[in-house]
């Protein structure tokens, strides 16, 4: 098939179109409030870091540092819990072949069909009973019960050869040792992908903290950013600077794990 050189330029142009809003955000975050939304000038008249200063001061109005901390804690704790529970479960079902394991797996996969929104109201009622509303655990614990991780790791572990594990058992390795020293490293890339997916989903989750959190100091970044819009009047410069800060960790994680992410994203797509 012939390749057109001009197509290269078109695609680069499209790519740039997709990132143009990021460039706009970057410049806007260094503008003064009165200037931020003037469409006639993209570059700031005078570079001004007052939005970032405001963020570092951690104002009462918008405790962005605390939102950031909340986001980190919730996303990392969720990720840790999800990969721990999912890998143990997948290990028990596919490697230790517990009796009834496949029925359990079927049940877990079956519940994945239920839209997440169906859980919102009952979880609210349950978390209220457990006195977990307005705490980070209201977001962490329910996420750990999701079936996606178990499903993903089970299908991966099933494809692994059993020879190494059998040899290890003959060498007197215990089952927990086998899990920790052999199975886990073999699943490394797929656990890393699961970790990145879970982290991104938790970090960007909007409806759950909106529903389960009460105090402004327990907010995560997305609901915090939305708060700018709802409270009296939007301060666009601050909103945009905060959005950039909120996105930076994900972009970094994405660039580091790009290969794993794209591979497994397509793997899940192509299996159907």
């Amino acid at each position: 098939m012939r390749k057109y050189a001009s197509l290269n330029y078109v695609m680069v142009a499209i790519g740039l179109l997709f990132v143009a809003p990021f460039a706009f955000m970057f410049f806007a975050s260094f503008k003064r409030e009165a200037e931020v939304l003037r469409p006639e000038a993209i570059l700031p008249k005078a570079w001004d870091a007052s939005n970032y200063e405001a963020i570092s001061r951690n104002s009462v109005e918008a405790p962005i540092n605390i939102w950031f901390l909340n986001s980190v804690f919730i996303a990392t704790a969720t990720t840790l819990l999800v990969i721990t529970l999912a890998s143990l479960t997948a290990f028990a079902i596919t490697r230790l072949k517990v009796r009834g394991g496949n029925i359990i797996l079927g049940l877990i996969v079956g519940t994945m069909m239920i839209p997440a929104q169906l859980f919102l109201i009952p979880l609210y009622v349950i978390l209220r009973r457990l006195h977990l509303l307005d705490t980070p655990y209201a977001m962490i614990l329910p996420s750990a019960a999701g079936g996606f991780g178990v499903f993903m790791l089970s299908s991966f572990m099933r494809s692994l050869p059993t020879a190494i594990e059998e040899a290890a058992l003959l060498d007197g390795c215990t089952l927990p040792q086998m899990f920790w020293k052999i199975t886990l490293p073999l699943c490394g890339p797929s656990i890393a992908t699961l970790a990145v997916f879970t982290f991104i989903a938790s970090w960007n989750d909007y409806i759950t903290p909106l529903t389960f959190m009460e105090s402004v100091t327990n907010y995560t970044l997305p609901v915090g950013i939305a708060l700018f819009q709802s409270s009296y009047s939007t301060q666009y410069g601050l909103t945009i600077a905060t959005s950039l800060i909120a996105t930076a960790p994900l972009v970094i994680a994405f660039l580091v794990f790009q290969k794993q992410i794209i591979e497994s994203m397509t793997a899940s797509g192509l299996k159907e």
Partner: peptide, 24 residues
Amino acid sequence: TGWILLLPYLAFFAIFVVVPVIVS
């Protein structure tokens, strides 16, 4: 061992998936 490893997740699954469906 398998069942012991399975239990933590199953507990979560019961509380945050099965019970909510029933409650809903």
